[in-house]
Amino acid sequence: MAVVESTFMLTNTSELKTEEDVFFCSVKLVTAYQNKNWQLAAEEVVRLTKYAANKLKRRWSTKNKTIKKHGEMPDYYIGAIANIDYLLKDAKTKTKSNILFSTDGTSICDYRILCHILEFLAKALRHPKKKKE
């Protein structure tokens, strides 16, 4: 069976480069989430996820010999993590409803998947955790 190219292609989103970008993206995600604008929320989730995946790739690269295992957390990450934790806490309370329509009724949010992605983001941005004293 031939591959059917979807008519709803993913739009290109600009790549997040700095810790500051990550923080502002998390702010936009919170706003979109609160406004139930799932299309916009999804854009920000994709951008954050790609950034986090690349962050781990760089950190875990065997070529990276000067890796700092337990460094200080950048301030912008602290803000971004707080935003993601807030969303995760809220989304977890809504998983029973599974999906929710956007305010204008045109898009949906599947909370089960969102929770998993947010959990990944929270862990990836925190990684590596500081060892307990």
Binding site: S6, T7, F8, L10, W38, Q39, A41, A42, E43, V45, V46, T106, S107, I108, C109, D110, I113, L114, I117
Partner: peptide, 8 residues
């Protein structure tokens, strides 16, 4: 997940 959220 983003695709699943699109109106189409």
């Amino acid at each position: 997940w983003k695709l699943l959220a699109t109106p189409t």
